[in-house]
Design a protein around this nucleic acid. Structure first.
Length: 422
RNA sequence: GCGGGUGUAGCUCAGUUGGUUAGAGCGCCAGAUUGUGAUUCUGGAAGUCGCCGGUUCAAUCCCGGUCACUCGCCCCA
């Protein structure tokens, strides 16, 4: 292993990775599929800075959330400002909405992607720098937005060939009134059973009681089984809203499972919350998740604006996507000059073909045999051999690498000869 | 932040009950083949056995620490 001058191993920072080779190709495929779909749904790209003033995140995500309390990459810049590398996209997009006065142009439909940063213990499907794709609709309080956003998700997972690997779990956290009523009931119930709660859940009871519903502790699960159910606390508007969302999913043929214990980690959610979950990734089964956050923008100091969106983890998706679906790199045409005298002619031809849109590979040194080897390694479709003999006749030799066949083609007919191949 | 597993060549892995020159396959480079690749044959380069310390006449092997990876918990995409 190579070492730096300080004698330390030259390696990436824990939980970060170089993305290259097949993984880079898979990422590109996923991202292009995502962007294409988002545009079809009328979403526009937004790209916000990778870091923001720290308040942007700790105000919106909730002081007690794990992300804020222990996972943020926060640092002071040279001017003494506290800045934070973004741990998720919604807060930054909401900030951008306010900063740019976009209430003038509601509704706003955005898509975004890029790296996120969370200081966590790395695990399968969990890194300190990871990549998300994100979709948001701002300014639509109607359930139609929930349905649309879920339709984008379902389309994406379908086109990535993952719909069979994944289950959509959905829940309604209710509006403020329903949520508060339920929360109170939960606290009362669990407080009555304090002695039987796990240590973790005792802490949750203080910080975020709804999290107890998610506990993996066996003792907690027994208690949770008899805990009050959120659906019993829905008020009429909440019930009607959730029913509309579910009816929309049914109309679109999107299968779902209602999970009344599904809660989200970040404070800003209300009404719809959902996760697409897979069993194929070990402990990190959530591949795409989101929900409604109607109060967030107002809480940040902007105009009261409804919002709903989701984020999907690229690394997690990439682990699931079948390699056959990922487009192969384009196979280049190799240009092989035979002898130094043909170097310039080869260079010109390469430029000509590249300008015409062909992928062209030309190696930098070596005799013909070497260059042929190199061309083969580059997975070229064919080699164009340029030698003095052919050149004198105004022609080149075209060799097909797949069947080994070889023909002489006049230079002025070369473009036509190549076009059917591309 | 907590617990388990792992760390030998670019990659996948053998191996040494502690002993002097640490191996294989793949890959890479070169030659057979200076106007023909993929096949075949021959040769070569490449390792401070993750790092630091301890035990020992002797450590890649045993012990401690550390770093990284990995699996799980917390939490999350």
């Amino acid at each position: 292993m190579a070492k730096s001058q300080t004698g330390r191993k030259l390696q990436t920072v824990r939980g970060t990775h170089d993305i290259m080779g097949d993984q880079a190709r898979t990422f590109r495929f996923i991202n292009q599929t995502f962007q294409d779909i988002a545009r079809r749904f009328g979403h526009r790209e937004i790209s916000t800075p990778i870091f923001e003033f720290t308040e942007v995140f700790n105000r919106t995500l909730g002081e007690t959330s794990d992300v804020v309390s222990k996972e943020m990459y926060t640092f002071e810049d040279r001017g003494g400002e506290s800045l934070t590398l973004r741990p998720e996209y919604t807060a930054g997009i909401s900030r951008a909405f306010i900063s740019n006065g976009l209430q003038q142009s509601l509704p706003c439909k955005f898509f975004a992607f890029g790296p996120m940063f969370r200081y966590e213990r790395p695990q399968k499907g969990r890194m300190r720098q990871f990549h998300q794709m994100d979709v948001e609709i701002l300014g639509v309080p109607e359930p139609q937005a929930d349905i649309e956003v879920l339709a984008i998700a379902a389309t994406l997972l379908t086109e990535l060939g993952l719909m069979d690997d994944v289950t959509l779990e959905i829940n309604s956290l209710g509006d403020q009134e329903s949520r508060n009523a339920y929360r109170d009931a939960l606290v009362e119930y669990f407080t009555g059973h304090k002695d039987r709660l796990s240590e973790d859940s005792l802490a949750r009871l203080e910080k975020n009681p709804m999290r107890i519903l998610d506990s993996k502790d066996d003792g907690d699960r027994v208690l949770v089984a008899d805990a009050p159910r959120i659906s019993d606390y829905y008020n009429e508007p909440t019930r009607a809203f959730f029913d509309d969302v579910l009816a929309g999913l049914e109309a679109l043929g999107i299968k779902y499972v209602i999970n009344e214990r599904l809660v989200r980690g970040l404070d800003y959610y209300s009404h719809t919350a959902f996760e697409f979950i897979t069993a194929k990734l070990g402990a990190q089964g959530t591949v795409l998740a989101g929900g409604r956050y109607d109060g967030l923008i107002e809480k940040m100091g902007g105009p009261a604006t409804a919002g709903i969106g989701w984020a999907a983890g690229m690394e997690r998706l990439a682990e699931l996507v079948s390699p056959e679906l990922v487009p192969a790199e384009i196979r280049p045409i190799a240009i092989v000059p035979v002898g130094a005298a043909c170097q310039m002619a080869a260079l010109k031809l390469a430029q000509q073909l590249r300008s015409a849109g062909h992928g062209v590979d030309m190696s930098y040194r070596g005799n013909m045999g070497k260059r042929m080897k190199r061309a083969n390694k580059a997975n070229a479709v064919m080699a164009i051999l340029i030698g003095e003999d052919e050149l004198a006749r105004g022609a080149v030799t075209v060799k097909n690498f797949d069947d080994g066949s070889q023909t002489e083609v006049a230079l002025d007919q070369l473009m036509d000869h190549l076009s059917p191949e591309r």
